[in-house]
């Protein structure tokens, strides 16, 4: 059965008031329900602007965005729209409002007027989903960055959104925290069918996505599986992005005239490809 698009973007243009240049220039995208899409781009590519447009914090200058079939410019359904999209930002310290982890997670459903018993159930479930249930009575400011960011994700989940949009959620985290956050959102998508839109400039975080959309100067420059996009080394370099070391090595071998695939993304796949080449050449 073909999956329904949950986000549809049609010829989207956006210009910040007072700016002469367009930040987004004619974007057309459709994102399937239950998929994991990564949006990759350097600073100023328009990727954070896109996140704010999805949640109607900003409205299109022209063009349309439909989330769950609703036009984001339709003020009447604004509240429904915001309930269906959970947003997580870069800095966990700017998103945590309460002094106790579980109060923080309960903040959104409380504002939505959800029944207390239901809030209790949602908070427990959301904290279990992100692996922070044992910390429910802790003070957020004493948690690590990765833990705080998982609490922020739980806060978004407690609204029971259909889409989770994360704007550079790991930019301020160390490698361990990064892995915690990425594995949490990957699990959410794979096990619970949550649609995930991950905005990032870390290539390594996109490897597990179903789809990778590269954004540059407000337009989509590449769109495909991570394998397809990463093998376009020249294109990525032109955009100030770097392909993973695996792809760069294979690319250098290709340039030197050797027959190796470009889409061996993981360390093991890459090592297999290179060892295979050496074996064929009688060097191993």
């Amino acid at each position: 059965m073909p999956k329904q698009p949950i986000i549809e973007i049609e010829d989207l243009h956006f210009t910040y008031p007072g700016d002469s240049a367009e930040t987004l220039r004619g974007l057309n995208l459709s994102i399937e329900e239950g998929s994991f899409a990564a949006v990759l781009g350097h600073n100023g590519s328009g990727k954070s602007t896109l996140a704010k447009l999805l949640n109607a914090i900003l409205l299109p200058t022209s063009g349309k965005i439909y989330v769950c079939g609703r036009d984001t410019s339709d003020e009447e359904h604004l509240l429904d729209l915001r309930r269906s999209i959970g947003l997580v930002f870069q800095n966990p310290d700017n998103q945590i409002v309460a002094n106790v982890v579980e109060d923080d997670v309960a903040f959104a459903p409380e504002n939505l007027g959800v029944e207390p018993q239901e809030i209790r159930r949602r908070v427990d479930e959301a904290l279990k989903t992100v692996g922070m249930y044992e910390y429910r009575l802790h003070a957020p400011h004493l948690l690590s960055g990765g833990q705080k960011q998982r609490v922020a994700i739980a806060g978004a989940l407690a609204m029971q959104p259909r889409v989770l949009v994360l704007d550079e959620p790991t930019a301020m985290l160390d490698p361990l925290g990064r892995r915690e956050v990425i594995s949490t959102v990957t699990r959410l998508c794979r096990e619970q069918g949550m649609t995930v839109v991950l905005i990032t400039h870390h290539m390594s975080e996109c490897v597990g996505a179903d789809r990778l959309i590269a954004l540059s100067d407000g337009t989509v420059t590449a769109d495909g599986t991570p394998r397809e996009v990463f093998s376009q080394v020249e294109l990525l370099r032109g955009e100030g992005l770097t392909a993973p070391a695996t792809v760069r090595l294979l690319y250098a071998l290709r340039k030197a005239g050797f027959d190796v695939p470009l889409d061996a993304l993981s360390v093991d796949e890459c090592a297999d490809a290179v060892a295979g080449l050496l074996r064929r050449a009688g060097r191993l």
Partner: peptide, 29 residues
């Protein structure tokens, strides 16, 4: 996987050079 690489490889440049060096004699395809 049995590839005889020198010990001190940790940048993409040194890796590229070492691998190209090993593959060096192969006729380009």
């Amino acid at each position: 996987r049995g590839v005889a690489l020198p010990a001190s490889i940790y940048t993409s440049r040194s890796l590229r050079e070492a691998v190209l060096d090993l593959a060096g004699g192969v006729a380009p395809c």
